[in-house]
Design a protein around this nucleic acid. Structure first.
Lengths: 352, 352
DNA sequence: CTGAAAGCGCTTACAG
DNA sequence: CTGAAAGCGCTTACAG
């Protein structure tokens, strides 16, 4: 017997306000052509009855479901929660609801799961994060259904879907130049997960900064990573056991930078006296390590908020700006400092 | 023109399978009284047409919306993400969708927001986390609407709603006894946020362990906290500047324990040689600090998965077990060690 | 075991 | 500016 006390319907409101249900509908949907007086009467009845229109009835009868979905692939909690909150905040302003859909974009059933959500819930649109938006098959299915979507920091820029992004290359370059300004010349770099677009772009920023400053790029100083703590730690171990180890390590995200800190502590390498460590993202962990991480603040909440805003623009007007760039900023904390003075180091020597 | 390519309806399936829509409905809903043959025909048509029944139509026509909501109040990302994933995983098995609803249970509009969700989306039930489930007003409204809900680690055990929990008191006692076994006698304790039930219960576990082991409870060694990093750091500063500081600090959660580690590093107190630090929860941060945290593993995914399972039991059978206890476990890592040998410490002395 | 009819609570398309 | 009718895509309640 889960049947609940009977809920108020549009008919109850119409009766109480002495108008037709169509007029109630007009008021609820803020349509024109209602006199101030009837409008007030209807609103009064809505409030008195505590009327909430049924989402499913509106969805079934109308063109819109007032539902959108946020799809992401196994990101770190400290990244996805601000993203969720940004999307939810924008939805709230609009009276929309958000489904969050974690998924594994490598799983065979991945596309079917998202499509099932789209078909069953008739969502009006989607917000996709990388690397979800990389799935050609998913994009094709969405296009076929003409379901609009937007992207956050997408990998693939060929699709016309609007997106938000930050200047990953510029940010990585700034961070690297900041380290160079501190006197560092041997700067290790830990790459991100190969599936993410940001991985290559951040690497490019690092290389660009070296180049501009006449520092030779050294292959051995660039290590693979996977955007998680363990991969950062592993990369740091490789870097710090080089014959000529770096005096600074720039990790492509904070989780990996935290892994570097752990290795440094294990090896009793004092930070930042002997080794500077920098991260990327400015997630929660950046201020929970010791020392706290110098990092690039990625505006995660805003990226999601604005992406969702672009989606609403498409929904309402049929189009939106192609892309919006959100501002990053360098956050200097205690994990970086001036380079140690050299004794026997030979900067031109190439490590294996 | 957001109108999409026309979607398949139950009529399309019925036509293709040469049955009535009622029979299609029977098959989709796994109702009895369908012969194997017609069942197969219908399923074939469903697959061929890639038919997905409309959630809103089912919701409007039927008794169920196949929607549930997870409501939480501003918890740490590393806690809520496993909780979300646990609830989503259980929903997936059942063909349900989950709304996540972050909220501020102190905000004036809090109850209205949740009720609006319930009324608009007609959710079949709710999963509440503390301290959301503490709101008498919310519970009253849910009861009035006869909307079933379950709780995760609730504060208030008077309501008949089923819940999942772990033995916070036992776990805190075990951790404290573990520290005692390591030789610690002056053990600082950092309390959690006063709004959370777990706060008092964990404190009780700590006190119980002291008592059992004949160690006098010292008021000055127990400090207030708020379950976040900064409050843990502040509490640690107070504890470590006592005339007779503790040799171990047990923080009521990992975030606060991470704050303790930071203060220890600032004050050059080596861990665990001079100070042991223990946390609670075993969230992501517990393995991202240095040294890694000894902590209590709280089964967050399972607490949510099982709570959602209880909700489905209520939905299907009208009742469920009153509560289910999930197993915690002590996780020993590098932040704790044997107590330093004393020189001038006077254990019986009472701090201000 | 199967189906025809009614209706869920709205919006749409149209009329006045 | 306002409203009566039809219909969205299902499930319910009932009949056979």
């Amino acid at each position: 017997m889960p049947a609940s006390a009977k809920r108020k319907t549009i008919h109850d409101v119409a009766r109480q306000a002495r108008v037709s249900i169509k007029t109630v509908s007009r008021v609820i949907n803020e349509e024109p052509n209602v006199t101030a007086g009837t409008r007030r009467r209807v609103l009064g009845a809505v409030a008195a009855l505590r009327y909430h229109p049924s989402l499913s009835a509106r969805s079934l009868a109308g063109r819109r479901s007032r539902l959108i979905a946020l799809v992401y692939d196994n990101p770190s909690a400290n990244y996805i929660v601000p993203v969720q909150n940004g999307a939810i905040a924008r939805c709230r302003d609009e009276g929309f609801r958000l489904f969050v859909q974690p998924c594994d974009s490598k799983a065979p059933d991945f596309v079917n799961e998202v499509i099932a959500l789209v078909d069953q819930a008739r969502v009006d649109g989607l917000v996709l994060t990388a690397p979800v938006s990389e799935s050609r098959k998913l994009i094709r299915e969405l296009d076929r259904r003409k379901v609009p979507f937007v992207q956050i920091a997408p990998n693939d820029l060929h699709h016309p879907a609007p997106y938000t992004f930050m200047d990953d290359e510029g940010a990585a370059r700034e961070m690297t130049e900041y380290l160079i300004d501190l006197g560092h010349r041997r700067i290790g770099f830990i790459k991100g997960h190969p599936d993410h677009h940001a991985t290559g772009v951040r690497l490019r920023g690092y290389r660009g900064a070296l180049e501009r400053n006449g520092i030779r790029f050294c292959v051995g100083l660039t290590q693979p990573g996977a955007f998680n703590f363990d991969s950062g730690a592993a990369a740091a171990r490789r870097l710090m056991t080089l014959r000529d180890p770096p005096t600074a390590i720039f990790a492509s995200n904070d989780d990996m930078a935290a892994g570097v800190l752990m290795v440094a502590h294990e090896l009793s390498i004092s930070i930042p006296a002997r080794l500077s460590v920098a991260g990327f993202d400015d997630t929660y962990i950046a201020t929970a390590t010791w020392p706290r991480l110098t990092t690039v603040h990625q505006p995660m909440f805003e990226l999601a908020f604005t992406a969702t805003d672009l989606l609403f623009k498409v929904l309402k007007k049929g189009h939106a700006p192609k892309s919006v760039r959100l501002q990053h900023r360098l956050v200097r904390r205690e994990s970086t400092g001036t380079a140690p003075t050299r004794n026997s180091q030979d900067n031109s020597r190439r490590d294996p």
